[in-house]
């Protein structure tokens, strides 16, 4: 840190940013991009026991200075997949149409998909970090931690490579691995996208799924942080 950071800089987009100033206890907190609440002791106005809670999104906390793209109160199209979201085709002729579990054949090329908010039918296409690849494998091949996040063998993995963020766009049907064509990282689909080759440091995030009346439905949010770590 250097003294430049004495001036806080924030890109303030009124449509996407909420600044909450709430008078509460003697702590101040704000959320970083991982949605972790970061707390610090307040120095403001102790004598009157009025303290301020600043709830705002600071970007990755480690990457000071505070020049940030706020993501608090993201609009639905930018919000990460949520429980009960449905899945739609992200590209191709059927772009935007609902994906049925039956659309996925065992060991066939993964289908690029986006989650859709079920009530408003808003597709979460506002961030490439929401895109997943759907693939079906024989359940007998799946490791237990993989099977538990799948819907009868249908698995959803983030399409964003954990190396430096390219789309994992290739499929090897002989090995049943997803391959990132940027720098050839390979992910073992049957085993929670374990890295088997290449520079990717971590598995792809999984999006737990369930099947409801033939429909693929999101069970809960991503199992790990989507994207890559800038370090």
């Amino acid at each position: 840190m250097h003294r430049d950071h004495a001036s806080l800089s924030v890109e303030h987009d009124p449509s996407t940013t909420l600044w909450h100033l709430v008078l509460i206890e003697s702590t101040i907190s704000f959320r970083n991009k991982k949605n972790q609440i970061v707390m610090a002791t307040s120095i403001v106005n102790r004598s009157r026991r009025i303290f301020v809670k600043v709830l705002m999104d600071f970007g990755v906390l480690a990457s000071l200075p505070f020049v940030s793209r706020p993501i608090a109160a993201r609009p639905p199209e930018k919000t990460r997949p949520q429980a009960d979201d449905l899945m739609v085709y992200a590209e191709g002729d059927r772009k935007g149409q609902l994906i049925q579990a039956a659309d996925l054949q065992i060991n066939a090329k993964p289908i690029a998909a986006l989650p859709m908010e079920p009530v408003s039918s808003i597709i979460r296409a506002g961030s490439r970090l929401n895109k997943v690849m759907l693939v079906r494998l024989d359940t007998a091949r799946l490791s237990s931690k993989t099977a538990k996040h799948g819907a009868d063998g249908v698995l959803a993995y983030s399409s964003v490579c954990t190396h430096t963020g390219c789309d994992v766009n290739r499929w090897n049907d002989t090995t049943s691995r997803m391959v990132c064509s940027c720098h050839e990282s390979e992910f073992e689909v049957a085993d929670a996208a374990r890295v088997v080759k290449g520079p990717a440091p971590k598995p792809l995030a999984m999006l737990p799924l369930k099947e409801v009346e033939g429909q693929l439905v999101v069970k809960s949010g991503f199992t790990r942080r989507v994207g890559f770590q800038q370090m």
């Binding site: 991009k33 970007g59 990755v60 990457s63 961030s127 430096t164 963020g165 940027c182 890559f228």
Partner: peptide, 9 residues
Amino acid sequence: DLPEDLMQM
């Protein structure tokens, strides 16, 4: 502070 959806080839 690079955007989180950046790809870095």
